[in-house]
Computed example of a mutant assay.
Amino acid sequence: MINLIITQFFRRRHLAWAMSVALVLFGAWSWTQMTVEAYPDLGDVNVQVTTQVNGLAAEEIEQQITTPLERALSNTPGLASIRSSSTFGLSLITLTFKDGTDDYFARQRVTERIGQVSLPSGAQPGLGPVAGPAGEIYRYTLESDTKNLMELSELQRWKVIPALKQVAGVVDINNFGGFTKEFQLELDPARLQKYGLVLGDVVTAINNNSANAGGGRIARGDTDIDTLIAVTIADLPREQRDRIVVHRHTATRTALMDMSLLRLALRNLLSNALKYAPGLSPVTLHVMDFDEPAALQFEVADAGPGIPRELLPRLFTRGARGDGGSGGHEAAHGLGLYIVRRVMDMHGGSAELLRTGPLGTVMRLTLPQAG
């Protein structure tokens, strides 16, 4: 047979040359498609399942976590062998797959089966990185003459590791050594007994103090001005309502601000004015608007003795009070004006003292109306 093949090649030399050229071209094409790795991974395709649960002994880890996971993973397609290890607070399962199994196919099947297992509260199995035994390529250390081990650890976790993980091909980075920042609370049993507290009360207070909650926003809807004035006056004592005189200098029907907040600011101004106005003298509320720029204004005027000069610099500060001068009219000046200023600032408006003197005081609220 071999002699016949050799004879045919000699008789048909053009066929031998054609086959030789075809083999050369196929070899050149195969060489361009061949994957060249400096450190080829010769290990089997494997997936590691790690579950960490604090406080469980090795026997409990084996019974409650490792065994249920092994039973669910034992029939994974392409599985060649399975090994497990259970230690204090840690379960480690290594699954080895047959040659030719795709890494991501194996991990997908393992993830599907893990999701079907019922585990104790707090147990969250996780898959190890897509890396083989020869995957470790580089080791480094962080050293400093000015930073301690805790500072170096924070630099490693928050600066170095995130930067290295952005490098193409880097699967995972393992950190060894260093100190972790901790906040420790030392309790005094005598003081706990003094205040009638137990350890659970302290733990609950700490958890509540460090809890995260979703933020919100202030709704800026249309507030009917007539309704606002009526509700604000209704909040006042009955004997004070008749003393308020309302003058509307605008046809505007609505204000671009939350009803409850604007009501709070306006009520504080009216309450102050009613306290300082002598006897049964009226307090006047003026409502007006402007076009350039679009704004709505509320002015509250009283016939009181005016605000003391020493109180003016801190009129809108928190807790501002008068000094209890003659007649007692100065004793409560500034009450609630800090809140008024804060409410208006939140909506881009302003609260200001327009004028004050022996003939009375005028306060003004300005609320922008450009939506």
Rank of each mutant, 00 (worst) to 15 (best):
G319S: 08
L199R: 14
E352A: 08
M19R: 08
A265W: 01
R263L: 10
G215S: 09
I225T: 06
G100Y: 12
A163N: 12
A351K: 00
R263G: 09
L312C: 03
L56V: 07
L354Y: 03
V47R: 01
D99N: 09
A331I: 01
N268T: 03
L285H: 04
D291E: 07
D145K: 15
A370E: 05
H333E: 14
A273C: 10
S20A: 15
R113K: 14
L119W: 01
L353E: 03
G177Q: 13
D222S: 10
V47F: 00
A38V: 14
I161K: 09
E151Q: 08
V49N: 04
L152Q: 13
N272G: 06
G357N: 11
V167M: 06
E186V: 11
G336F: 04
G319C: 05
H286F: 04
E59Y: 12
I6C: 14
Q108G: 12
D258E: 15
I225C: 09
L73D: 02
V362H: 02
A295Y: 00
L256M: 13
I5A: 14
R113H: 12
G215Y: 07
F26W: 04
L79T: 02
R263V: 03
G371H: 02
R139Y: 08
A265M: 07
G126Q: 14
H249N: 14
V283W: 10
T111D: 11
S326A: 15
K98F: 14
A277E: 01
I229R: 03
V47S: 02
L269H: 02
M150W: 07
F183Q: 11
D145V: 10
R11E: 00
L197K: 15
I82W: 00
L127P: 02
L269I: 04
R309Q: 10
E292L: 11
D102E: 13
G55L: 05
G200V: 04
E60N: 14
S153G: 13
G304R: 00
D103M: 15
T50L: 13
R220F: 07
H14T: 12
A277H: 01
R241T: 11
G349P: 00
V287P: 00
P237K: 09
I339D: 15
S121L: 13
P305C: 00
T180I: 11
G325V: 05
F298N: 01
P305Y: 00
G132F: 05
T204Y: 06
L274C: 03
L119R: 01
L92P: 03
N3W: 08
L236A: 06
A255C: 06
S20F: 08
M150Y: 09
L15C: 08
H347L: 10
R318G: 03
T87M: 12
Y138I: 12
R243G: 02
Q193N: 15
P358Q: 06
D172S: 13
P308D: 13
F9N: 13
I65A: 03
H247M: 11
A332G: 07
E299M: 04
L142W: 10
L185Q: 01
A370I: 00
N207Q: 09
P278Q: 09
M34N: 06
R71H: 14
F179M: 09
L92G: 05
P120R: 15
